Simulated scan of single mutants.
Amino acid sequence: MSGAAPAIASGGAFGADPLGFADAHLSEAARSTLTALDAVVQERVRPFLTQAWENAVMPTGVLDALIPLSLMTPPEVDADEAASSIFSGFRTFVLARTDASVATAYNAQSGLFRTAVRLGGSAAQAAELDPRITDFSLRGAFALTEAHHGSDIAGGLATTAHRVGDEWVIDGDKRWIGGADTADVIVVFARDTADDQVKAFLVPRDARGVSLRRIAGKVSLRPMQNFDIGLTGVRVAESARLQRVESWRDVARILRALRSDVAWIATGIQSGALEAAVRYVGERRQFGRPVGGFQLVQEKLARMLGNLTSSFGIATRLSAEQDAGVYRDESSALAKMQTARLARETVALAREVQGGNGILLDHDAARFFADAEAVYSYEGTHEMTSLIVGRALTGISAFA
């Protein structure tokens, strides 16, 4: 029917969700909390995004707006649900639906840093530090990747640590470390020269021998600041070593718990891109009618919604498995591979239906279009995740 009201709502905290994943997986209290988050983001974060992208600087007001919401331990939500992968996933989705850099900045603390301490630290370390992490009185960064070792970091990690009495001396370099400039401590992964096993250390950002250099010239995740970190003769006490990281197996356990985050970011940017596209084609007129009334445009929008809905299903199922204590490398690899691949297509279609205006930040699709390229590569490239899935399918490893 011409001029009929849309049957699929695309507003609210969860955007277009025709199969009702949010309603099916979140309590009313959780949905209310995330709706309140969305309202804060729309009012206090979104207005600054265009300038943040133009200047490649994350406004201090972004985290200032989010921290008081206590999103890691929201008082209105049951503690078990608040700690679940489902809740944190939808929280990530709401943030990424506005901007991937906003989600990445928050997750650097709530995901990477907090998980490293909770799973890698001793019970005493976790008990002491987790409250300070959740209220942001202790800020952290996660330093694993190196300039010459990304996909092959498990065997190639070159940063070293050797013990001297009750201290460790760390030497090496790290790359692509998000939020390092605002961190109080940086979780540095280094290879113990005594046993060749990977260990993890809480290194103060201002420790002697630590140097930071901002990575400039990014076309993705522009507001999110990434750094090269140099470590030269950096000394930390044995008490600063995360006591439950004794080998790469322990690092993998931490990473495995984080894999759902990237699937949720990939899903969130698709939702944001779809909304930007629908908004634009409803307002833009060509040949005497709204662009949204053309058949080819509607086909593209329908494909975007299909991709988004598929990604919702994958992300929620992966989080539900993790909440049930089931962690499979092939499942998280499949989720990352597929949602990131679908995101790449979805954001390209959003930019496409906006025509020439699609490259302007004012119409939002350009941000999602650029960020999808980063999501496609980080936390496991398409090729690496494909090989993990292929190994599970065939029982044959194709890794070189």
Rank of each mutant, 00 (worst) to 15 (best):
A39L: 08
W264C: 01
L387C: 02
V169G: 01
G15Y: 10
A333N: 08
D364V: 03
I153H: 11
N307D: 15
Y327G: 03
A370H: 01
S331P: 00
T309V: 12
D78P: 02
H148W: 09
A127H: 08
L112P: 00
T346W: 06
G325I: 04
G12A: 12
G217H: 13
G292D: 10
E167S: 12
L26S: 05
G172C: 11
E43P: 03
F368A: 04
S137R: 14
G230V: 07
R175N: 12
A190F: 09
A315W: 15
R253Q: 07
A116Y: 00
L334P: 03
F113H: 07
Q243S: 14
F93A: 06
Q109A: 13
I254P: 00
A30M: 11
T160Q: 07
A141Q: 12
A82G: 14
Y378A: 01
S377D: 06
G179M: 13
E81W: 12
E352I: 04
S32K: 11
D261S: 02
A39D: 14
A180I: 09
I388W: 01
D23M: 06
V245F: 02
K336N: 14
E28G: 06
Q322A: 09
R46C: 11
V77F: 10
G89P: 02
G380D: 03
E43A: 15
N55L: 15
A400C: 03
I133G: 11
T182Q: 15
R351P: 01
V185M: 09
S260N: 02
R97C: 00
V210R: 06
R222K: 15
R205S: 04
E321N: 12
G120C: 05
R367Y: 08
P18S: 04
W248K: 02
N55E: 14
V77G: 07
V281Q: 12
G272I: 00
A154M: 12
A365G: 10
P6N: 04
G209R: 05
A252R: 08
P75M: 11
R328V: 10
H162V: 05
T267S: 09
A398R: 07
G282Q: 04
V236R: 04
L26H: 12
V77I: 10
A22W: 10
R91S: 14
A276P: 05
S122M: 08
L305C: 08
F189S: 06
G293F: 04
D17K: 06
P59N: 04
Q295E: 13
E81Y: 11
L49H: 12
D196P: 00
S2A: 13
